[in-house]
Design a protein around this nucleic acid. Structure first.
Lengths: 148, 148
DNA sequence: ATCAGCAGTTAGGGGAATCTAACTATATAG
DNA sequence: CTATATAGTTAGATTCCCCTAACTGCTGAT
């Protein structure tokens, strides 16, 4: 997977999220989502298509190539993990967590993403077990059970 | 506190860490620490001094102004919180945690930093209590106590 | 079938950060 | 005290990403 700038990673992610079942993304929508001008979005499309990550026929909708899709999915997955970790474990407000995830996803290591994922998974198990046994849950913000 | 680019925040942090009790930082050391050329570091110093964050007399050591120090300390504190959270809570390798902290510190919200800090504090309390009571600790990677 | 309005494109420019290369200043070893 | 190594500076080019302004292409309402 080729190395991309954060900016390009964001464009790719936007295209991924704006495309749905057979439909591609439009320059205007991409521009709006990323709060840039159409000119900027358009120029980014040249860059991404040179890297083989999107199709870019003039005046046509934009589609991800398999390689572009793979890259976008990976970024998007990191986003989801961070978002979930920040909201569910750290109990950060969803809007702020989303903003943070949007920035952090481009710079965080795979190791740390994996660790967050495992942490979430483990916490879930603990919740289930502990709730089943009726014991107090020590996770911050967990109000499912009360101390006897 | 004025808005700074990530790059400038990094330069400021480097100066902070390279200065010690009355001594300022040197261009060469700053450049080396950030893996850029002396020319780049030098040009960054002009920017920072225009913003009133450092003193920058030609051929003299570089000192933080009160405002620069304040900014650097804040960044540095965020770095420490992230580093501690990633190593102690997520059990990520220290070197990787450091790299991640170095990038994340510039983009993460104050809310999330605060949440990490609180999480660490709470975990510490739980450890103490639980260990005292001799119960099993469910925190990932905690091997202090065993289930009876 | 036309044309107004919207979508997309192109050209040109600017700021931020980096580099190399060539320069000047400082300081220290002899 | 001078020579030379090291530190710092300057100039100029490059890359990335953004902008505005002005253009071209497309399409649906009449």
């Amino acid at each position: 997977m080729e190395k991309l700038t954060f900016t390009m990673e964001n464009y790719l992610e936007a295209i991924y999220e704006l495309s749905s079942d057979g439909n591609g993304a439009r320059i205007s929508d991409i521009a709006e989502r990323l709060s840039v001008t159409k000119a900027s979005a358009n120029s980014a499309m040249s860059t991404l298509s040179e890297k083989g990550l999107i199709t870019n026929e003039k005046y046509k909708e934009i589609f991800l190539t398999p390689s572009g899709r793979e890259h976008a999915e990976f970024t998007s997955k990191k986003h989801r993990v961070i978002q979930e970790f920040f909201t569910k474990i750290l109990r950060v407000d969803a809007v702020i967590a989303n903003r943070d995830a949007c920035a952090i996803e481009h710079v965080i290591s795979n190791d740390s993403i994996y660790a967050m994922q495992e942490f979430i998974r483990t916490e879930k198990l603990n919740h289930t077990t502990r709730n089943f046994r009726g014991t107090h849950c020590s996770n911050p913000g967990c109000n499912n059970t009360k101390r006897p």
